[in-house]
Design a protein around this nucleic acid. Sequence first.
DNA 1: CTGAAAGCGCTAACAT
DNA 2: ATGTTAGCGCTTTCAG
Lengths: 335, 335
Amino acid sequence: MTTMQDVARHAGVSVMTVSNVVNHHPHVRDSTREKVLASIAALGYHVNAAARSLRQGRTGVIGLAVPEVDRPYFGLLATLLIERAARDGFELVIEQTGARRDRELDAITRSRLRSYDGLVLHAAELHDDDATLLRGDFPIVVLGERGYTSPLDHVEMANAKGAALASEHLVSRGSRRIAMLGGRVGDPDDIDVATLRTGGYREALAAAGIPFDAALVRAAAYTFEGGRDAAGLLIDEIADVDGILCATDVVAIGAMRALRERGLRVPEDVRVIGFDDVPLDAFLTPSLSSIAPDHEAMADAAISMLTERISGTRAPGEYRSFVADVRLMARESTA
Amino acid sequence: MTTMQDVARHAGVSVMTVSNVVNHHPHVRDSTREKVLASIAALGYHVNAAARSLRQGRTGVIGLAVPEVDRPYFGLLATLLIERAARDGFELVIEQTGARRDRELDAITRSRLRSYDGLVLHAAELHDDDATLLRGDFPIVVLGERGYTSPLDHVEMANAKGAALASEHLVSRGSRRIAMLGGRVGDPDDIDVATLRTGGYREALAAAGIPFDAALVRAAAYTFEGGRDAAGLLIDEIADVDGILCATDVVAIGAMRALRERGLRVPEDVRVIGFDDVPLDAFLTPSLSSIAPDHEAMADAAISMLTERISGTRAPGEYRSFVADVRLMARESTA
DNA sequence: CTGAAAGCGCTAACAT
DNA sequence: ATGTTAGCGCTTTCAG
């Protein structure tokens, strides 16, 4: 391994001069810079990041921990965050937690350990008890659902409003027996996504004068298989369903598959709407109606909150929260 | 920031004892360990990764550089690689290159800089001139297309065979005017994916006695939009196309969308088959036929090649290559 | 504009 | 079973 020492010797200068060249410091004579750069090229030198971070106390890297990289929503999120982080001079690297509580806790621990300068955590399984871990000195922004009430830097979307918009849309198209897939009838105090979105759905139905039927609210894993299986059971048990609000687009894709396998047409027999508005939606057959949060605003808020923490601009103990607005994207699946 | 010194002082032991506890070394008395762990908890201590890597000369992290995280194939790949790397005690972090040559070069440079122990690079835009960068002391495995001929550790799939399988399948279903979307009629020496897959397509058509028509081979960006636009142009210009082989599943999804927009049915009017066999395929309407490489074998080969390099098991200058077998997954889109 | 010295936090090697 | 020493490669600080 080549070190700065080696380069300095080769170029006949001191290590400090090499360091100054590498870090684009201004006060280096052109001829010296040339000489050093030539030596760097000749020796194939690369800065050692470990030594640099140890010395500087920062890494220039932000971590993103998500449950599954292999899901369209997280792919989109990662892309936007990478772009936004780059604008603030940070690189972003992605870690997968597998939506398991222990792995999410690991990600927090490791991001200190690995010396990311901060962490964007999309938590799926953390609870109030764990929330204390998220406090303290290390910069963390929690994205999406919370599942706990403690104060934190936090970015989410208007879940209840989105579900209400989607439900109203289904009603306005003529659906009356509307199911909620990937929903949950929880305590009103619960603030997990499933409960929040189901809350919006209930409100919209009530406003439309449609009686609530708990049998129409079904749990579903947020995967293709989860959507397919839950929709299959639903349809087999309740024949007159004519609209399905899915908690995520991935669930909706699974649900549309189940409907097709049973010979039901979308939207003629059953209207389907998803949540998240991932790029894929517009290319499906039929194209999938969805609720679109302002993804860019979310990425923007998350990174700016984090950089404020990293730079120490905001006082510890003073937390920010951002709720992205949502809008309806009506497509063929609810025509 | 709390250091090992602080913990040692707090626990009334030496730093080495703290280090031994943290690293699960055996020769520590239980009572001592308890004491140290208590101090660690009390002070909220976390190991500093920069200092550790600087000292040990390794990080335990493998980088994965892909053009776009927001594409199903790379999501799948990342998931499998993460799992496989964990089995060898490595964490894997993902970086996005944007399929731009400069960013790919950056990823190489940075992965040395950031002291990953090795890099899995899915290169889309690197050429022979850059290949020298991939040599040298740093452990790199190139995944997928190469675009250059220099010796390297390299993992790919049987591209030509896959395209031939897909073409034969379309022929056996009754298609005769078969287009290749995302293809390229290159020099036979070219080894980019587009040319390789187009080669398999040509061979299969020739074997079936179907004359080659260069107008049926179309370039396409490997995105939903790319597939939709290229398929739209194709259909508008050549009305009697009855089969489309797409270079990737994402292109196929875009193509199916374009067909639907023109009132053409899949598979009744036009059969469509993709490449990569991403999990989404089985949930589409119609479900998408595809060519499935042995994804797990590819992940396995890539990580084992890399760990061999990292551990120095394999001699520098001695390169390995792995070609994953492919098989046909026939689904509704080619029924 | 360039250089010398000190030390970031940790662990390998060697005592005790 | 525990402690001491040295140094990984870099940059901050201060001198020249």
